[in-house]
């Protein structure tokens, strides 16, 4: 088999695939943990307590308004500075590992974006739905779970798919803190051989991943919205994502 491959792939193909697997893990874990954190901060954002709303707004805007790579450096090198403290707290085993640091940074980052998506989706559900739920005598939190969330989920679907794709692309920065993801393995192969074509093979893998995600997501969306009429589907697509809002909002 390997004699049919370009020489660089024969030598580094397995490494690139290992890196690809690390990239998938980085993205999967961060998106998964991100959903949990984003749900919590959306809850805080819609809370009646002003300080919870503020805290959540500051977190969301801070992480959406600054570069992911700077956040990663803050967590990797910044938290690493206090390794003595983490050892006492028995947390160093976690922060010591570059992969964990990357997952932590990516989770905090994607959760902020996801929270904004969730909030927008909840607010897009017409007021009448809240009123209808309470007219049926449903308690507020049941009405929220059974009436609002299912409708909001459909509004959130498209921007959420975009966020996964953004995370795939963003995950490449993990390679700058010695995580051997797809780009990390690629850089290693390049520095060993100065063979530039290795970047093209890595680029092709990223493109395949992103395009696959995009197509799968389109199918998913078509399936979940098949009960909607074309006009409301159009409306959903047109909804622009909100620009970064000042903290005070």
């Amino acid at each position: 088999m390997s004699e049919f491959l370009p020489p660089i792939l024969a030598r580094y193909g397995d490494d690139l695939l290992d890196g690809f697997w690390i990239t998938l893990q980085l993205v999967g874990l961060s998106i998964g943990f991100g959903i949990v954190l984003a749900s919590l901060s959306t809850r805080a954002r819609l809370s009646k307590r002003w300080w919870l709303r503020w805290l959540s707004a500051i977190y969301i805007n801070l992480f959406r308004g600054t570069p992911l790579i700077a956040q990663l450096f803050l967590i990797y090198y910044g938290l690493g500075q206090f390794s003595g403290l983490w050892r006492t707290l028995n947390l160093w085993w976690f922060l010591r590992d570059p992969f964990n640091c990357a997952v932590l940074a990516f989770t905090l980052n994607t959760a902020a974006y996801q929270a904004e998506i969730f909030r927008g989706a909840v607010e897009a559900v017409p007021r009448g739905q809240w009123e209808g739920a309470s007219a049926l005598g449903l308690p507020r939190h049941i009405g929220f779970l059974k009436v609002i969330v299912p409708q909001a989920a459909i509004y959130a679907l498209r921007p959420f798919g975009n966020e996964i794709i953004l995370m795939v692309k963003g995950s490449a920065v993990a390679s700058v803190v010695t995580v051997y993801d797809l780009l990390g393995e690629t850089r290693l192969a390049f520095s060993d051989t100065f063979r530039f074509d290795v970047y093209f093979y890595a680029a092709a893998l990223y493109l395949v991943l992103v395009e696959t995600l995009r197509r799968v997501w389109n199918l998913l969306e078509a399936r979940l919205t098949r009960h909607l009429d074309p006009a409301s589907k159009q409306r959903m697509r047109r909804r622009k994502e909100s620009v970064l809002e000042p903290v005070a909002s």
Partner: peptide
């Protein structure tokens, strides 16, 4: 050898640039 302090300052500067941009765009 003060990574936490300096990266935090950098993040605040990026955030300030984003905020000013948002205000102008608004």
């Amino acid at each position: 050898k003060e990574p936490f302090f300096f990266f935090f300052v950098a993040i605040l500067i990026y955030f300030a640039m984003s905020l000013v941009s948002s205000v102008i765009l608004g």
